[in-house]
Amino acid sequence: MIPASFEYVVAHSLDETVGLLAKHGSDAKILSGGMSLIPAMKLRLAQPAFIIDVNGVSGLAYIREEHGELRIGAMTRESALERSSLVKHGYPILFETARVIADPLVRNRATIGGNLAHADPANDHPATMLALGATIVAHGPNGDRLIPIDEFFPSFFASALEPDEILTEIRIPAPGVRNGGAYIKFERKVGDYAIAAVAVNLTLDAHDTCIAARIGLTNVTDVPARATRAEAFLVGRRITDQAIADASRLAAHESDPKSDLRGSAEYKRDLVRVLAGRAIGRAVSRARGGSH
């Protein structure tokens, strides 16, 4: 499979990138990891006239805590997230997300920014970022703009980025006391998109009452989405097996999967229930200080 011809431009700075985006508009595509874009181009599903390679823009690959947030540069490779001890120990939900994306070789190229900007409901980071309540930093002609993750996926395969903006950073609130998260993905085999996956991030008080909960769903909605009724159900409730089971049922109800080769809609909805139950259970265990 051979991509159609295009013009290749290397950007050396964010401003140059934004200028190129402004000039070429929707004819241009940003090339970061390329792990979604290049296969689409090879299949000629995507035929952009201009490719703007941002791999040469320095200062976009980092993982650091500052201002009470975890800040991740958009060009950070998935493999860097997997290898980061800060991520592994401080944000296990993010570690669990990164390490189930595609396969290890793809993760050496794929970037977290690309995963989010592609706005594919089958991608793994959107659900996790929804659960974490992340903020997206977009850079455009007027500088930086902060976009709450809840507003980042407005419609099918579309992000809230303007045509002349580039995603530069992801900000995740640092976990508070008795906070725990988990991402559980069920796939047909390594390298597959999720049949379904559930991201859960919650906080308990000293008496095991849930005081905050966010749940993100992967590949079971048209756009990356939260299971808000399940979240609302959990908040204010003492965590019991029954509460987890009830919340999981609500999450399943909120999913809207389509039948395909991965399974029937009915199957996927039930899978959301099962995975939500397991993810909530793991998140609770972490919130309580368990290691697992």
Binding site: F186, R188, I195, R262, G263, S264, Y267, D270, L271, V274
Partner: peptide, 17 residues
């Protein structure tokens, strides 16, 4: 015997998982 197929068999036979 894919997960979705086995799941269907289980649910059809009353196993809720």
């Amino acid at each position: 015997m894919t997960p979705s197929k086995v799941w269907k068999v289980l649910r059809d036979h009353g196993v809720t998982g």
